[in-house]
Every structure is written in structure tokens, then in C-alpha cells.
Design a protein around this nucleic acid. Structure first.
Lengths: 261, 261
DNA sequence: GGAGGATTACCATTGAGCGGGAATCCTGAG
DNA sequence: CTCAGGATTCCCGCTCAATGGTAATCCTCC
């Protein structure tokens, strides 16, 4: 599928190049980029030049490369994420204002939770969510909410594989998890104390789309020792309904709970 | 530079494909994509398949294509926009809360203003800014602020070209504009009534980076008939300083105004 | 001045990309 | 049910853009 000796397409290499950048490495020299991607030196330079021409990458004064403005623009403008984000943001602001802890919006992607938006970086508690960052499904409240409202077939396949135990409270037993998911569906929220980092607990509720399937999970991260974290739930539920409605959801149809199991 | 008869590289075609999507067209059939991009049918299908394999594009149940989650993720994670946005967001929320009109953050890119973030979609007034959307520099308060604090050489080249007159108040005369830019630098803000749409006016202030150059413009859009729009300025200035500081700016060095003209 | 790395230049080789054409699948109208 | 028009997939020979090694050049900091 490619001219390359290694059998990669240009697209594949493009992905490698873009993947080399992350929040800790927003810019680097071409040589370093070559090292990080593992691409042949010459090839890296040629490819980078092509990308510079299209402004998908940009060269900064020092010579280092970073992801181009144009790239951000094109992707942002055409992506469906923007719609979701814009629908959610006003409600998230309300939640954040009331709860005073960081509020996140996550979706399910490639068997992980991908965080789309996050408000209020609260230094006082441990919160490892990042925008465009990923966390495992079974070890986050958002993930469990998303999983709980996924098609049964997906749940089965997910629960079939081995799950990492991050802390004492991380659930890894399929049967136990399955019961937990049922509870989450019934109660309408997930409250998980310290399933990924011991010091904080997450509370999450589902956000629905027009077809009444889950689109995202809205959640807050609070200190684990908080008195009654459950008191946070109503605010979240109300906000989630607001977001759902903004997405075109029109109230719960009969059989909302039927979609899973 | 390409195998194609038309002499385009794959990268170029990739750009064409991604560009075919925007906020009004977040998904479409492959055939339509082919039409919009002008690429040969077969080529479109092959290319789309490659992109689907890498998850840069995604196929929805109906068969339509949209920009992939992975694409958004990679670009967002690696892009410097996120840093700017995250630094600005808290302050923008404050501004939005106080001013009660839509608040935007824009940067200068390819001789246009590119809006990075926008809070509060206020239906009561006309505001055509969109996230990842562009507007002309000389017809927006943000644009004029950015231009006013750009290197003199850039200003000269910009003012050398013909400028479109959008409304009665749009400034298009180079000499007049130049004087206006000086005022903006001196006063520290731009207040432009109806320069792009007659009904609303924008107020913008500069945001600085560590090297004391402009990074972005923070602005609000208010109804044009508002009593004293200038009263909004202090809030904006304060917020802009906050953002600048979050970006690593350390107070104004002597010679702040010297950088331009 | 010179060692070590980053960047550019050169160039022979070749298979990935190309795209026209035709077959097949879909879908909605009559 | 049939049929038309469009979307999608298959097929396939041609060809030149992409490849990546080697070597020269440019930096930059001891």
C-alpha cells in the first residue's frame, strides 16, 4: 500500500507525524520528529516540507516545527465535535459555577473515554483528565456511564477482555461490573470513588442524542472525602438534559432503558 | 509533485477533502465529496478508504462520511491552540458573565482574523463570528487590534492592498487606517461600530505573549446602539492582562509601544 | 577550530497511486 | 414489479512521484 520499504502509505506516515505532537511536545526539530516517528531521515524532511507547503505544519523562528493553524482550523470547522461542544458548553459552565470542581464532557471512542471538553482546572484535587486526552472506560465514572448505555453486544465484548486494576476500588470483575452497569442505568448516574486515582471520585451522567442513544457523559471530579457527593447529582442531571435537548433530544421515549440488555 | 494527472500531491488532496467539510456540511456521501473536491471519482473512493482505515474519516450508518474522532483528537492534542484557549477560557467566562454579550478570542492568520474561541451565542444581536471561522482584519475590532500591534513591515504590506468596504463605517483608506491603528495602540483598545455588520459594534483589546508580542485579541460584540460601549473596556483590559500573564507575559517592559512604528 | 548534530542536495530505483471504464448495488418513482 | 439514475465497488495497465541511501553543507556550542 505504499512506495515505502516499510509498506506504509503516506496517510499512515502523516498520522505518525501528527501523533508525534502532544500536549507535552507541541513543537520539535525535524530531526527529533524523525526520531520520534521512526521514519527515515530524508523521508521525514521531504514529508515535512510538503506539509509546510500546505500549512498543515508550521515552522517557528527557531526552526522547530509545530502543528499548523490551518490544520486546526480545517479539522475544527468540519468536525462534529464542535457541535457537541457548543451545545454542552453553556450548561457545563453552569455546573462548574455551582459545583466548583472541574467539569468534563467525554465520549466513547475506540474502547476508551475521550474527553472533549473540560472546565475549571482545579489544582486542589487530583484530576488527570485532559482535553483530547483518553482514560480507560472501566476506571472512570464517565466511561461506566457510556458503557452502561451502550448496545448489549458492545458491553459483552468489552467485558470479555481483561481489565487493569488501578486502585483498590477499581472494578474488574465482569459479573460485578455488569451489575454495576445495571445500577447506573437504573439510577441514572455513576458515582465512582477513586477508581483511577485514590484521592478523587467522579460522578457522571449520560447525555442523549435525538435517536435516544448516548452521545456523551457529563461529569464532575470531586475530592473523595467529600461529605455527600451524591448531592451533586441533580445539578448534573439537569444540565445533561439541557445538553441533550440542545442536541435535538425530545424527552425520554418509552423504552429508554430497553436499549441495553 | 504528484502521481496525479493534475499534478497534486496526496497531501494537497487530503487538504481538499478535509476542506470540503465545514460547519454546514459535517457529513456527506463519498460521491458528493468527490464533486465538492473536484477529484476523479475512483481517486476519491480510494483516498477516502485510506483515510477511513486510519480513522481520519469515519463512516456513519447511512454511509455518509465525516471527519473522524481520531483526527480531531490528534490535531487538538498536538496543537498549540489548546494552550492558548485554556489560558484564555477562564477569563473569557468572567468577561462573558459581566458583559452578557458574546465574547471571542481571535488570532491573526493568513491576513485574516481566525476565531479560536467564542462564548455566549447571543441571539439578540448580530454576530457573525464562529469558532474556527474567519473574518477580514480591517473590518473587525479584533483584526484592527492585531494589526495595530503587528510589525510595521506587515502593516505596510497589508495596507498596500485594496480593502473591501462592508458598511458605511468600514475604514478602507490606508492613511486613515494608519492613524486609527496609532490610536488603538495608544488607547489600548479598538472600538469599531458596525464595520462589518451595521447593527453591532465590536470592542477588542490585545493579548500578549512572553516576548511581549501580540498573541491574540480578546473582544466582545455589543449592540451598536448601546449607551457607552466604552464602559466595557476596563473589564476587557483586565481579562486580557490575566490571559497574557497565564501565557507567560510578565508585565509591560519599557518599549512596549515601540514594537510597531 | 573542530566535533556533533541538524539540514539540504543529489539521484537511481520502483511500486503506489492513478483514473478510465465497466460491473454491481441501492433506492425511490411509476 | 420494473426501471432509471445515482452511488459504490472492481478491474487493470501505465507511469512518475515518492523513496531513502549517501554525501555535502550548515549551524552551534565548546
Amino acid at each position: 500500500m505504499a512506495n515505502s520499504a516499510s509498506g506504509e502509505s503516506i496517510i499512515g506516515r502523516f498520522v505518525k507525524i501528527v501523533s508525534a505532537f502532544d500536549d507535552r511536545h507541541t513543537s520539535m526539530s525535524v530531526a527529533e520528529l524523525g526520531r520520534r516517528t521512526g521514519l527515515p531521515v530524508t523521508t521525514t524532511y521531504r514529508l515535512v516540507n510538503d506539509l509546510l507547503l500546505e500549512r498543515l505544519l508550521e515552522r517557528e523562528p527557531g526552526g522547530d516545527i509545530h502543528i499548523g493553524t490551518r490544520m486546526w482550523e480545517l479539522v475544527s470547522r468540519g468536525s462534529k465535535m464542535l457541535g457537541l461542544r457548543e451545545a454542552a458548553l453553556p450548561f457545563m459552565e453552569d455546573v462548574q459555577a455551582v459545583v466548583q470542581h472541574s467539569t468534563t464532557l467525554g465520549i466513547l471512542d475506540s474502547d476508551e473515554v475521550l474527553y472533549i471538553e473540560r472546565l475549571g482546572s482545579d489544582k486542589t484535587i487530583v484530576d488527570i483528565t485532559k482535553i483530547a486526552g483518553r482514560l480507560p472506560v472501566h476506571a472512570t465514572s464517565s466511561g461506566l456511564v457510556l458503557l452502561a448505555h451502550s448496545p448489549a453486544a458492545y458491553q459483552d465484548s468489552f467485558l470479555a477482555r481483561p481489565l487493569t486494576k488501578f486502585t483498590e476500588t477499581t472494578l474488574t470483575d465482569p459479573a460485578l461490573l455488569r451489575r454495576h452497569l445495571a445500577e447506573i442505568r437504573q439510577r441514572g448516574f455513576a458515582a465512582m470513588p477513586g477508581v483511577i486515582v485514590p484521592e478523587s471520585s467522579g460522578i457522571a451522567v449520560p447525555v442523549f442524542g435525538p435517536d435516544n442513544t448516548v452521545r456523551a457523559a457529563l461529569s464532575v471530579v470531586v475530592p473523595r472525602n467529600e461529605e455527600n457527593a451524591a448531592a451533586r447529582v441533580p445539578v448534573l442531571l439537569a444540565a445533561a438534559r439541557g445538553i441533550s435537548r440542545a442536541l435535538g433530544w425530545r424527552g425520554e421515549l418509552k423504552g429508554t432503558l430497553r436499549q441495553s440488555h
